[in-house]
Each structure stands twice: as structure tokens, then as C-alpha cells.
Design a protein around this nucleic acid. Sequence first.
DNA 1: GCTTTTAATGACTGAATGTTCAGTTAATAA
DNA 2: TTATTAACTGAACATTCAGTCATTAAAAGC
Lengths: 236, 236
Amino acid sequence: MSEHSPLLPVPRSAELLATDAHPLVRRGRPALVDPATLAACALDLFVEKGYAATRLEDVALAAGVSKGTLYLYFDSKAALFAAVVRQGLVPALAGGEALVDSHRGSGADLMRELLWGWWRLIGATRLGGLPKLMVAEARNFPDIAELYHREVMARGCALIGRAIDYGHARGEFCVAGDPCTVQAVMAPLLLRVLMKHSFGCVDHAAPEDDPSAAAQAESTDIAAAIEFVIRALEHD
Amino acid sequence: MSEHSPLLPVPRSAELLATDAHPLVRRGRPALVDPATLAACALDLFVEKGYAATRLEDVALAAGVSKGTLYLYFDSKAALFAAVVRQGLVPALAGGEALVDSHRGSGADLMRELLWGWWRLIGATRLGGLPKLMVAEARNFPDIAELYHREVMARGCALIGRAIDYGHARGEFCVAGDPCTVQAVMAPLLLRVLMKHSFGCVDHAAPEDDPSAAAQAESTDIAAAIEFVIRALEHD
DNA sequence: GCTTTTAATGACTGAATGTTCAGTTAATAA
DNA sequence: TTATTAACTGAACATTCAGTCATTAAAAGC
């Protein structure tokens, strides 16, 4: 049996794992690429075309390496996909957790900051393609779905749940942060980002050709969606 | 150029299109299957495994025919997919439209009936797999995405929008039925059905092994989600 | 029976693509 | 210089599967 999960990156030589302070002398040809770059290129293509329709040859081409090189860093296409998910979303959660810990104002303001932060960091960036990718492929990759569920969804839900509980404890919100409420709170933004990356449309009457006007309309929509869920939390 | 779109079912002999009142005499071997059955079997597999991972041979096997037979009724895999979408969801919309036309009570009650109806007819059945399928495959099949957007999403949004406007006109809802609000209203139920058909979980603490308890917990969650959006609509 | 017509089959094909690996390149160590 | 090691390459391989088609089956008309 292999020493590492088939979904984890292939370990490179020990030198690459050494600290920068003591870069052990290396022999052989220096690496031209690093796994993070490959995963970043793969993210773009996975998000744009979906998992099945993304050819490893295109990922390699985008990263400026050959197809064979991919297999030096990732055991398989699925392992590359796992790396994309892990590298893309897990780091984005820390910021939100710090925000909830340090907040002192109203629950509504905390919720606004959290949801706007999520939108800026994930919804409005290419990372927004990952939720759609996971919805599309979770059934085909139970291991990766489990990773996503555990490392991303569970942590994210706990985060939002704590924010709702915060407002509830202050008497501002009429419900506690149970999973069902958390899902209802995230739903409008999540659905919007899913639509954006699948149908490519967001179904409002904004002009498609003027990018600044579209961005303006998007901000208005996000604000409306956020205020919508805050109304639901605050009622009475 | 062919007389029919490649995404439409292959027309059968004229006799099959004749009314039951005047079934013209037919020659040759009678058909053992009908396209609707094939599409129904394909729905199950598409929903379960996704488009790319569903092999036409398995669809044929599930329907009790051979792979070649599929091509007597559908030009291609994409055409079969289109038929699945059209046959599955377009008919389900008429009921909701009648409901909005005939309703006379409060806006909140209309919304409850609409959302519960959607859940019973789509969310809780295998048809609930279609939204996930469309989110997953829209980019790969622009034609089918356009069909879905026009025949399903646009009509559904108009429906919900009219219901919100109804409550708004009665002074019960604080917002009108613009597309952004419609999306926020549908979001919790849609997201839940997307999760159900991708991750297979709904992230609440209910026991997975007891089906009746799970159904009970699901009803409670749906009710909570519906009351959540109604609070957001009613505020003040 | 025999012919005609439609339905159905399933082995086959061809294209696409994930994966492998023998060989090449570029660096360090002796 | 030469040996050694690691990174990299890309053609070849193996598999999967949508789509085809020659053949067989079953009904109706004569």
C-alpha cells in the first residue's frame, strides 16, 4: 500500500520541504514549476470547463510544462482536483474566523461584514467557481467531497452559525445559528455564484456590455440579498 | 440541413403522432418502448451519476433495450439530455401558475403554498436532481441551458415574482418581485435540493438510518426555510 | 407462403484522453 | 571532465464510450 493518499500531492524531495533558512544543497536540475502553480492553472480550467471537460494537456499547456510533468506532482487527475480544492478554499476561511472573534458591534453589522467579505474573497473571484465544481462533481469524487465538506463547509457553517448566535444572544436576531438557518443565510449569495458560474447570467436587467455598470448592478444586488437575509434574522 | 433540431427527439413514423381516435393502420413490428420511458430512465442515471459519467449503454440497460435503440429515438446523448430536461420540468410549472392566478388569501399563505408545492413536486422527488444537473452542465451545453433558462427558470421566476408582487400590492410584503428578490426567496430551497443531490447530505443532526424520522426532520427544515423567507418579505 | 415495412440488436469503429516510461536536459559533486 | 541525480518531455499505450450499421425479428398486406 502506498504511503500517501492518492489524492494528496506526490511528495517531492526532502530539500523542497526544508526551511528557507537552511536550504540544503540540492543536486540535479532545479524545478521550473511548483505544485501550487499547477493547481492554480488547473483551477482556472476546471472552473471554466468543468472537471470532465478539462484535459490534463491543457492544464500542462497553461502552466508551461508537459503533460508528463503533471504526474511528477500529482498521482492522477483526481489528486490534482483535490489539491485545487484544498489550496483554493481552506486558506480563505481563517479571515472570517478572526472577524467573528474580534467583532464587538451589532449582529447585523457582523453579518454584513461576513457576507460582504465572503463575496469579495470568494463570490467575486475565480474561487467562486469552486462551489459549482463541487456541486457538479461531489457524487463522482466522494473523497474530495468529504474533504470539501469537512474542511470548507463545516468550518464555514460553524462560522456563520456563531455570528447568528452572537446576534441572537444580543436579542437582535430571532433565531439561533442552527444548520438550517445557516444554509438559509448563505443561500442567496451561494445561489448567485452558482448561477454566475453555470448559466453565466445573474438574471437582472443590467447591461451586459458595460463592465462598470454591471459591477455597480452586482453590488446593488449583493447588498439587496444581504439585507434580505438580515431582515429574516431580525424580524420583531 | 435537417428538418429538426439535433436536440429534439427523432420523429417517429406518422402513425405514432396520430390521435388515439384514428390510429392509422401500421405495418411492421410494433414498438416495445416509447421515448418518454427512455427519458425517464435517463433522468435517474443523469441525476445519480452526472451527464459525463452516464453511459448510454447503462441507460439502455435500465430501459431494457439496446444501445442502438436509443439512437432510434434520440439523435445523440445531448438530445436525450434535452428531452430529459424538457419532459421533466416544463410540465411541472403549469400547476404553480394556476395557483397564483386563483389565490385570494394573504401573500404569506400564497408563498407558503407555492414553496411547499415546489418542494413536493420537485424538491422532494427525483426531479430535484435536475437543477443540480443544469448547474453542473449548463456551460457544456449552451443550447440546453438556454432551453432550461427560457422554459423553466424564466417562467418560474415570473411565477414567484407575481406572488411577491401580490403580497406587496396588499401591503404585506416590503419588497416587490424583482429578479434579485425572487432568487433570494427560492435560494434556501434550491440550495437544499442542490446539496441533497450533490453531497447527499443536508447537514442537520437528524438520524440517517430512520427514514420516517429523516422525513420528519426534513419537513421541519423546509418549514423553517419557508418561514425564514416570509419573514424577510414581511419585515415591518 | 412470400414480400414489405418497421423495430431492435450488439458487435464494431474511431476519436478522445488519462496514464506511463524510456529518453533528454540541466544542475551539483567528485 | 565525468558521474550522479533530479526534473522534465512527449510519443506510445490502454481504456472508455458515443455513435454506426449490417443483420435479425416481428408484424401486416397480398
